[in-house]
Design a protein around this nucleic acid. Structure first.
Length: 716
DNA sequence: GCAAGGTC
């Protein structure tokens, strides 16, 4: 019997060949550079095997001729337009290979990843092979890890493809295409009609839009923030020249009178008494096995690489055979995973080799188990030692390796001392708590985690003392920060926006569309929405307000969840693909009709905030020298061409009039129309010079505004 | 000129 095995990607084809053939196989090239055909005998089922693969989805979907061109139809018609499935040119060679090999086989065995998309890819493969050989028997191999025993079991006990899962994916594909295309065309064309100069596409998608929404949501919180004053009792003891600070168990109160009354009572009896000293063993847990999302978060936070970049680098390392498959949701290792061999490969490393050698002598600890398992790939780990890497590849490889070694090491151990103090009837405890680090364990190989010991004086239970300081102090709530890339990855992951493999792409998309600007502050990269981004989200929210929030950003996120739930229902066969598609499409159609009717609001209310005859427009944020500068655009009937530069710290606002010749600093005032001191001439010159250099950068988002025809800005 | 999902 001849069996054709088809995997989802070249790496899996190679691995299962290695396992099933026991290393005895021959290789044939195909018309595609990445795809090889492997031939061998598989006596266990009395068969001849050929293993090959596709490269992800085989087909792509698009509208037919009548709807493909942007101006060929009303965008609304796209919801009911027929969609064609075709094999894109770069996949033709793979299709030809499948036809040739399928024509020769009795059985087709699908070895795609065991997830929804894998089931759909399996159907695509089956369709092509059936064309070449209509009576071919189609089977599916089920495996959850590339481990010899599992792969053999899968080859000998194949199951059937799951049509329901494939159909759920089909519904997703159609929904994404129709909703994305309809809204993108409607938005773009509507604004182009209004503002002829508008360039570029204003894309809309069920993933990119909520992603943008997160950025704008945080931006609004930062903008709306007003510091609040709070009061707390501060206690400290200086003994032998060392100060121990105590934290009030109540934390802090926003009620000054209340705090003052408690403080008065404390003052009546300000002698402190130690009521309890406890020492207990404590641990700092080693990290969980590494998933794609965690790698991207770490990459952004620790390695200062954008999520997309981290994934690209990891992909390269994977192709060179240094790390395992980098797209995985799994944060638990299979119990049979061969840890020791992989750790052994790291013993030659000059930096962590010595530590890797300790694992054989009791240094090994079974990795923690996370909650996720995609049943297709293990957590990301090094597969070989790489000694000659440089730059980003070195950084990412080092992180993956140290993370793996940390997972296989032991939790750090310490001893923590808690001291409870009562003073005037109020409870206090020293902060930081006393900590002695006893065993660093995993921390030795994982410098990304910090755990620093801290001593507290040797207090005795029952001991009394007079605090060195006992005061009612005042503090202020601190301003939230803009969203970092790592924050955004976390939010998307938590809210189910995108997948491990696509989260980075969606972030890239909103940057490419100029909905969001990246801003460095020190070593941290923040994401700040542009005028356009804020305008779109605010605009939709504005419409949402009048229509039971149907279009608000939270609602959009909710729709993504609903779609996901319905997909699960299709998989579980509690609803059909067509019903699910119809329900979802109806929902989006309803949204579309309102959005189009109200779209003027996106253009005006969203992009401009009216205030009397003047209007102000948040544009963007840039660093001017070392100072954070917030740029506002302000127009009045008499001053049409104006830029307002606000220096936040000093609360100085410079109004810059943009004239055809360049930039001129004209006047100064605060955003709230209060009188503030004019800038010194020297400062004006600095601002002027900096603006000249940065004007083009600065004005990029503003030019959008000009394109919208709301103000006629001219720049050199 | 549109989406999001695979993968290279």
């Amino acid at each position: 019997m001849r069996v054709l095995c088809v995997a989802e990607k070249p790496s899996i084809a190679r691995s299962i060949t290695g396992i099933l053939s026991g290393g005895q196989y021959s290789t044939r090239n195909t018309g595609n550079n990445f795809v090889k055909n492997y031939d061998f005998d598989y006596p266990q089922t009395n068969s001849t095997f050929t293993v090959t693969c596709v490269s992800g989805h085989l087909t792509s979907q698009d509208f037919g001729e009548a709807h493909r061109k942007w101006n060929s139809c009303d965008p609304f018609a796209l919801f009911d337009a027929p969609v064609e499935t075709l094999i894109p040119p770069d996949k033709k060679s793979i299709e030809r290979n499948l036809r040739t090999e399928g024509g020769r086989a009795d059985t087709l065995m699908i070895w795609t990843d065991c997830d929804r998309e894998g089931e759909h890819i399996g159907m695509e493969i089956a369709r092509v092979c059936r064309k070449a050989k209509p009576n071919i028997v189609v089977k599916r191999a089920r495996f959850s890890a590339i481990i010899a025993q599992q792969i053999h079991h899968a080859a000998q006990h194949p199951i059937e493809l799951d049509r329901a899962q494939a159909e759920a994916v089909e519904a997703r594909i159609l929904l994404d295409l129709k909703v994305g295309a309809a809204f993108t065309r409607m938005q773009t064309l509507a604004l182009q009609r209004q503002f002829a100069q508008l360039e570029g596409v204003l894309s809309y998608g069920p993933c990119q839009f909520p992603t943008l929404g997160f950025v704008v949501q945080r931006y609004n919180r930062v903008k709306a923030f007003r510091p609040e004053t709070f009061w707390y009792i501060y206690l400290s003891l200086t003994r032998d020249g060392e100060e121990t600070k105590f934290t009030w168990k109540e934390g802090h109160l926003f009620d000054q009178g209340g705090a003052a009354r408690i403080y008065e009572i404390v003052l009546q009896n300000p002698r402190a008494r130690v009521i309890r000293v406890t020492k207990k063993d404590t641990k700092k847990w080693k990290p969980l096995p590494l998933t794609t999302v965690e790698l991207q978060k770490a990459g952004s936070r620790l390695l200062k690489l954008a999520p997309k970049k981290v994934l690209d680098v990891a992909e390269k390392l994977y192709q060179q055979g240094f790390v395992s498959y980098p797209r995985t949701e799994t944060d638990q290792f299979d119990p049979q995973f061969d840890f020791m061999t992989l750790i052994g490969k790291q013993t030659v490393d000059p930096a962590w080799g010595e530590f890797a050698r300790t694992y054989q002598n009791g240094g090994f600890g079974v990795p923690r188990k996370g909650k996720n398992n995609d049943k297709a790939h293990p957590p990301i780990h090094p597969t070989a030692h790489a000694g000659n890497l440089v730059g980003d590849e070195k950084k990412v490889y080092e992180y993956i390796t140290r993370r793996f070694l940390a997972c296989c090491s032991k939790d750090a151990e310490g001893s923590q001392t808690t001291v409870e103090v009562v003073c005037g009837g109020e409870d206090f405890y020293p902060l930081p708590l006393g900590l002695i680090v006893l065993q660093r364990n995993y921390l030795e190989v994982y410098p990304y985690d910090k755990w620093i010991g801290h001593t507290v004086p040797n207090f005795q239970e029952g001991e009394e003392f007079d605090p060195s300081v006992c005061e009612l102090r005042e503090g202020q709530t601190s301003k939230p920060n803009y969203l970092t890339e790592a924050d955004l990855v976390t939010l998307m992951d938590k809210n189910g926006i995108g997948t491990d493999a696509t989260i980075a792409q969606h972030i890239q998309t909103i940057v490419d569309r100029e909905y969001v600007v990246e801003r460095m502050e020190g070593a941290i990269k923040y994401l700040v929405p542009s005028t356009l981004g804020i305008g779109l989200i605010d605009g939709y929210n504005e419409i949402g307000k009048s229509f039971s929030r149907l279009l608000s950003f939270t609602r959009l996120t909710f729709l993504v969840h609903q779609t996901e739930r319905r997909m699960v229902q299709v998989c579980e066969r509690t609803t059909t693909k067509n019903d699910m598609l119809q329900t979802s499409l109806d929902q989006y159609k309803h949204m579309f009709i309102i959005a189009r009717r109200e779209f003027d609001k996106v253009a005006t209310v969203g992009l401009i905030t009216h205030s009397h005859s003047a209007w102000k427009l948040m544009v963007s944020h840039r660093v001017l020298g070392d100072t954070l500068v917030q740029v506002l655009l302000e127009g009045q009937e008499e001053v049409e061409e104006a830029v307002v530069v606000e220096e936040e710290e000093e609360a100085v606002v410079v109004v810059v009039v943009v004239v055809e010749m360049g930039v001129m600093v004209a006047t100064a005032r605060q955003a709230e129309e209060e009188e503030v001191p004019l800038l010194h001439a020297a400062e004006v010159a600095v601002v002027e010079a900096a603006l000249e250099v940065q004007l083009l950068l600065l004005l990029t988002p503003i030019l959008k505004v000009r394109a919208f025809g709301m103000i006629s800005l001219t720049h050199a």
